[in-house]
Amino acid sequence: MAAAAAAGAGPEMVRGQVFDVGPRYTNLSYIGEGAYGMVCSAYDNVNKVRVAIKKISPFEHQTYCQRTLREIKILLRFRHENIIGINDIIRAPTIEQMKDVYIVQDLMETDLYKLLKTQHLSNDHICYFLYQILRGLKYIHSANVLHRDLKPSNLLLNTTCDLKICDFGLARVADPDHDHTGFLTEYVATRWYRAPEIMLNSKGYTKSIDIWSVGCILAEMLSNRPIFPGKHYLDQLNHILGILGSPSQEDLNCIINLKARNYLLSLPHKNKVPWNRLFPNADSKALDLLDKMLTFNPHKRIEVEQALAHPYLEQYYDPSDEPIAEAPFKFDMELDDLPKEKLKELIFEETARFQPGYRS
């Protein structure tokens, strides 16, 4: 834990890192770190609560700039109880001085990944967590956004079992017609939660990839272990087919990539493993919904509104309290091709509203 900075004593240090967030945020305490930044909790002297502050230093890398800009653009436009918001952003007053960006968010005690390492969940908890994931996802999908990296560590939890989806750095506007060349190379989302079509096709992607990830998360809540822990690309596919069985001819016809289709045709026939054999203690309604989410063919996979209306979630289902976005989200430009200098300018502009004396 960093010592509390005395008023006016300059930035606090946390594990050798400068955290320049005073005077409003003090009493910093280390939480963890990701690929390009550290997260601390801090005391907000204005709202009198502890908050989470993520320090991001992305400006050396085009990919990190892209992810940072995506996350900020999306989260500043989203407003939903099951999606983490941005409360404040701290950065230098000029673009030349801006080396880091500090993002202030609600402090959540833990995440689903940490929880599943230590606790076996009751059916009631599984049901409530799944409902909140789908409630947040309904809003995301209504904005025409794909999260693309749903996994237990991106689901934040607090002691009252509130759940918030975080990390929109890989999110995209849904565009089933656009052929994202190089899709697989830039697709760094965790393999275990990846839909089979991501490994088999490169053309376009749809909201059904997020539903697949939610199915993987439900299976993990039922058993405290990942359902498809593939060691590499082909191993991942083999794990999936080992449980779902061989795809039907109709399902194979959806695979545009001939090499991928021929690979699947070359494999020995596998039978589907019954879900109640894998999860003998699970609620039968939970397994019915799991089956509809972990469907090989993305066109037959359940959609988020149908999933919310499934009998497993009937005690929570309330369409009048499951809000959607006001308007579909649009990125003005494809960020993939922009140089990091341009992305830095866009991050600077996007964060201006939090600067003292800002006038829109």
Rank of each mutant, 00 (worst) to 15 (best):
Ala2Pro: 11
Ala5Met: 09
Ala5Tyr: 00
Ala6Asn: 01
Gly8Arg: 13
Pro11Ala: 12
Arg15Leu: 11
Val18Glu: 09
Phe19Met: 05
Asp20Trp: 04
Asp20Ala: 08
Pro23Ile: 01
Pro23Asn: 04
Arg24His: 12
Asn27Ser: 00
Leu28Gln: 15
Tyr30Asn: 14
Ile31Gln: 04
Glu33Lys: 12
Gly34Pro: 03
Gly37His: 06
Met38Glu: 09
Asp44Met: 12
Asn45Ala: 13
Asn45Met: 05
Arg50His: 02
Ile53Thr: 00
Lys55Met: 06
Ile56Gly: 15
Ile56Tyr: 15
Pro58Cys: 12
Pro58Ala: 15
Glu60Met: 14
His61Leu: 15
Tyr64Pro: 14
Gln66Trp: 04
Gln66Met: 13
Thr68Phe: 06
Ile72Cys: 02
Ile72Ala: 03
Lys73Pro: 09
Ile74Asp: 04
Leu75Trp: 15
Leu76Ile: 03
Arg77Gln: 12
Phe78Gln: 09
His80Ser: 02
Ile83Asn: 13
Ile83His: 04
Ile84Arg: 15
Pro93Leu: 12
Thr94Gly: 05
Glu96Val: 13
Gln97Cys: 05
Asp100Val: 14
Val101Trp: 08
Tyr102Glu: 03
Tyr102Met: 06
Ile103Trp: 15
Asp106Cys: 01
Asp106Trp: 00
Thr110Leu: 12
Lys114Ala: 10
Lys114Asn: 15
Lys117Met: 14
Gln119Val: 04
Leu121Glu: 08
Ile126Met: 11
Cys127Asp: 07
Leu130Phe: 12
Tyr131Arg: 03
Gln132Glu: 15
Leu137Asp: 09
Lys138Trp: 02
Tyr139Pro: 12
Ser142Met: 05
Asn144Met: 08
Val145Asp: 03
Arg148Ala: 07
Asp149Lys: 04
Leu150Gln: 14
Pro152Phe: 01
Pro152Thr: 13
Asn154Phe: 10
Thr159Asp: 04
Thr159Lys: 09
Thr160Ala: 06
Asp162Pro: 06
Leu163Arg: 08
Phe168Trp: 09
Gly169Pro: 09
Arg172Ser: 08
Asp175Tyr: 14
Asp175Ile: 10
Asp175Glu: 12
His178Lys: 10
His178Gly: 10
Gly182Ala: 08
Gly182Leu: 10
Phe183Ser: 09
Phe183Thr: 06
Leu184Trp: 11
Tyr187Met: 02
Thr190Gln: 01
Trp192Gln: 11
Tyr193Met: 03
Tyr193Phe: 14
Arg194Thr: 11
Ala195His: 01
Met199Trp: 05
Met199Glu: 10
Ser202Asp: 10
Lys203Met: 04
Gly204Asp: 07
Gly204Ser: 10
Lys207Ser: 11
Lys207Thr: 13
Ser208Phe: 05
Ile211Ala: 08
Val214His: 12
Gly215Pro: 09
Gly215Ser: 06
Gly215Gln: 08
Gly215Phe: 10
Cys216Lys: 04
Met221Trp: 04
Ser223Phe: 11
Ser223His: 03
Asn224Gln: 10
Asn224Asp: 00
Ile227Arg: 05
Lys231Met: 14
Lys231Leu: 11
His232Tyr: 11
Tyr233Gly: 05
Tyr233Glu: 10
His239Met: 11
Ile243Pro: 04
Leu244Ile: 08
Leu244Asp: 02
Leu244Met: 14
Ser248Tyr: 14
Leu252Asp: 07
Asn253Trp: 09
Ile256Tyr: 08
Ile256Asp: 08
Asn257Asp: 08
Ala260Val: 13
Arg261Asp: 04
Asn262Ser: 00
Leu265Asn: 01
Leu265Trp: 04
His269Lys: 09
Lys270Thr: 02
Lys270Ser: 09
Asn271His: 13
Val273Leu: 13
Pro274Glu: 05
Trp275Arg: 15
Trp275Gln: 06
Phe279Arg: 08
Ala282Asn: 01
Asp288Thr: 02
Leu289Thr: 01
His299Ala: 06
Lys300Thr: 09
Arg301Ser: 14
Glu303Cys: 08
Val304Trp: 03
Glu305Lys: 13
Gln306Thr: 04
Pro311Thr: 14
Pro311Leu: 13
Leu313Met: 15
Asp321Ile: 07
Glu322Val: 13
Ile324Thr: 00
Glu326Ile: 05
Phe329Asn: 10
Asp332Ser: 05
Asp337Ala: 13
Leu338Glu: 06
Leu338Gly: 03
Pro339Leu: 13
Lys340Phe: 02
Leu343Cys: 07
Lys344Thr: 06
Leu346Ser: 08
Leu346Gln: 14
Glu350Tyr: 06
Thr351Asp: 04
Ala352Asn: 11
Arg353Phe: 07
Arg353Cys: 09
Gln355Lys: 14
Pro356Lys: 04
Gly357Ala: 12
Tyr358Thr: 02
Arg359Asn: 00
Ser360Lys: 07
